[in-house]
């Protein structure tokens, strides 16, 4: 039973997080296990997690998007610019911000899937273009945003700020879709073996396009939430987020070669990093050391996970999920299509 649980990164990471929380609660009983601190940690990781969910889906399909951090800055910046300088109503400004994100995702997806541009080059170039765009629309920062815009990210439900609830909702919806629908499960087949997926009748290009659009749309939502939470749009928002999010997703069970990963893994990966960062703040570890310590812990965590999996599952070590699917199930999926 335990062996089976440890084989799954979601469970093994969940157990690791629980152990870390236990140790932190013993070491810092006055500061760590408080409602205020825990809700703050969840709030801090909510934006990264929303972006990580999109990145997880992309990585399952064997691709990744480096422009997500810039999209976060641009979508929030554009919405803020339209509300502040052009008096556009809040819903329309949000719609414009989200539409811009979807458009960016479509351009990325189209050029990668249909024109064969390398995903790293395409999204790296897009990262620069969109960051420049964010600088144009947000300039030196836009403050004093409308009350109802700020309310989206600053309201509380049961004492917890709304971005945490949005994050949980997005994780729940995407987990359900990826687990239960044939449409989303095709990403595993694409990530596992793109050629085989194509030969089995899956519209790989179209699916890839949708993947980039969904990832950018989630980054757009994250951008709106972040700017409303801060009550300000900044061109520097989301800087470095892409690598942070990819790290969280890999930690959560995805592989750069595609085919594996689960949506809750994105949340757990972000939680792991967020909790470690929080403990370092509580322990007053200087920022000079935080990156070094976080890096060492990440390497150790991934190594430990590999070690446990290697010990308990010689045969199925890192075997992509699509291979575990029975041919009967794959056939059923294609029949539905």
């Amino acid at each position: 039973m335990l062996k089976k649980l440890l084989q799954d990164r979601v469970y093994s990471l969940g157990i690791t997080i629980a152990l870390i929380c236990l140790v932190a609660s013993i070491l810092f009983p006055a500061n760590f296990p408080t409602f205020e601190n825990v809700s703050q940690v969840m709030l801090n990781l909510s934006i990264d997690t929303i972006v990580a969910v999109g990145m997880m889906l992309l990585l399952i399909s064997g691709a990744f998007d480096l422009s997500v951090g810039s999209v976060v800055a641009f979508s929030g910046g554009l919405a803020a610019n339209l509300m502040y300088f052009h008096n556009l109503p809040v819903p329309l400004a949000i719609l414009a911000g989200l539409s811009s994100a979807i458009l960016i995702g479509w351009v990325n997806g189209y050029l990668i899937a249909y024109q064969g541009v390398n995903p790293m080059i395409q999204t790296l170039a897009m990262m620069g273009i969109v960051r420049g765009g964010a600088l144009l629309v947000a300039g030196a920062g836009i403050q004093n945003l409308p009350y109802w815009y700020n309310a989206i990210g600053q309201s509380k439900l049961l004492g917890i700020q709304m971005p945490v609830w949005y994050m949980l909702l997005i994780v729940a919806i995407l987990s359900f879709l990826v687990n239960k629908t044939v449409f989303f499960r095709r990403y595993y087949y694409i990530g596992g073996n793109e050629k085989a997926a194509h030969l089995s009748g899956i519209r790989v290009k179209q699916m890839k396009l949708y993947g980039f659009i969904l990832s950018a749309a989630l980054a757009g939502i994250a951008g709106i939430l972040l700017s409303s939470r801060l009550g300000a749009a900044m061109s520097t928002l989301g800087r470095g987020m892409e690598l942070r999010v990819i790290t969280a997703v890999i930690l959560g069970g995805a592989s750069l070669s595609g085919g594996v990963g689960k949506i809750p893994g994105a949340l757990l990966g972000a939680m792991f990093m967020g909790i470690i960062a929080n403990i370092m703040v509580i322990a007053r570890v200087s920022g000079l050391w935080q990156d070094i310590i976080l890096g060492i812990i990440l390497i150790f965590a991934v190594w430990l996970d590999l070690f446990v999996q290697k010990r308990s599952l010689h045969q199925n070590f890192f075997r992509p999920i699509w291979k575990k699917e029975s041919s009967k199930e794959l056939g059923k999926a294609e029949l539905v299509e």
Binding site: N31, T34, E36, N37, Q40, V41, L43, N44, I47, L226, L230, M234, T236, L237, G238, R239, G240, A277, N278, V281, I282, R284, S286, G287, L288, Q290, D291
Partner: peptide, 24 residues
């Protein structure tokens, strides 16, 4: 005295640090 904050120029990370310090 303690000095905290991100290693890079990262304003959202500074905000997160402030909010976590408030709780302590």
């Amino acid at each position: 005295v303690s000095v905290l904050g991100p290693a890079e120029w990262d304003v959202p990370a500074q905000i997160e640090t402030i909010e976590q310090v408030i709780a302590t």
